[in-house]
């Protein structure tokens, strides 16, 4: 589904991604871990198309298309979804209106017919159950005054509605207590299918207790330096990152 080859990106003059390779197949869950400043969030932003980062080399193939040639909204329409680490507050636009616009713009892009109010109502009701979200929250201005947990739950609700092929969860666990974490993780698990894939970006292993990954990768200094299964995450939790740096021949 997704094949990232030798991806390089910088912000200003600072190189952040320095030749990153990663392959994700349908039905898989990949976790990307790594110390602060390794480039985890940069990877998420570059995949979604944020133009503050300049891609200086490499390719990102998503189902036969080069993602890097596409505008963020085109990537979204093809099925790439980024759950933001810091969901943006948008005063004056309700979650429902926002999502209706999003769904219909994507449908238009794909040459599908627009959904009407009745269809939306039915769909929203079904999806609300998945993340246990309240109607009143959806009527409010998007993310405005939401608690940390409400914002993340809202991200997963949006994911449920937009039904992406590839979901990238950027530090979705940050700022969440254990109950909120469980609800968010359950939502993600319910949305899992053999046809879609998930990339979980996280600093801590605790999220991976709930969203169990098939593969775990360590991102360090802009490259994937180690890959393994979920046991690797446990090892990182226990031993930190220093041993990886040592393996790379760095003095700690």
């Amino acid at each position: 589904m997704l094949k990232i080859s030798n991806l390089q990106a910088k912000i200003g003059e600072k190189e952040i991604l320095k030749g990153l390779n990663l392959e994700v197949k349908a039905g898989e869950v990949h976790a990307i871990m790594g110390p602060n400043g390794a480039g985890k969030s940069t990877l998420a932003s570059v995949l979604a198309g944020r133009d503050t980062y300049e891609v200086t080399g490499g390719e990102v193939d998503f189902e036969g298309q080069d993602l890097l040639d596409l505008a963020p909204e085109e990537r979204a329409a093809l099925g790439v979804f980024l759950a933001f680490q810091y969901p943006v507050e948008i005063p004056g636009v309700s979650t429902t209106n926002f999502l209706k616009t999003a769904v219909n713009e994507m449908r238009k892009y794909r040459g599908e017919e627009a959904m009407d109010a009745v269809q939306f109502l039915k769909m929203f009701k079904e999806k609300m159950k998945i993340v246990n979200i309240d109607q009143s929250l959806l009527n409010r201005s998007l993310n405005e005054g939401f608690s940390g947990g409400e914002k993340k739950r809202n991200e997963i609700f949006q994911m449920a509605v937009l039904n992406p092929k590839l979901a990238i969860l950027d530090e979705t666990d940050s700022g969440l207590d254990i109950d909120a974490l469980r609800i968010v993780a359950e939502g993600v698990n319910k949305l899992k299918s053999p046809d879609n894939a998930t990339i979980v970006i996280t600093h801590y292993q605790r999220l991976l207790d709930f969203i169990v990954p098939d593969f775990v990768h360590v991102l360090y200094k802009g490259r994937i330096v180690k890959s393994g299964t979920k046991e690797l995450a446990l090892e990182l939790e226990e031993r930190g990152y220093d041993w990886i740096k040592e393996e790379l021949g760095e003095t700690v």
């Binding site: 944020r50 909204e73 979804f81 943006v88 507050e89 948008i90 999003a102």
Partner: peptide, 12 residues
């Protein structure tokens, strides 16, 4: 906010 909306499929 603009990027957030674009990332949800809404054109610029």
């Amino acid at each position: 906010a603009l990027f957030y909306m674009q990332a949800r499929g809404i054109s610029k």
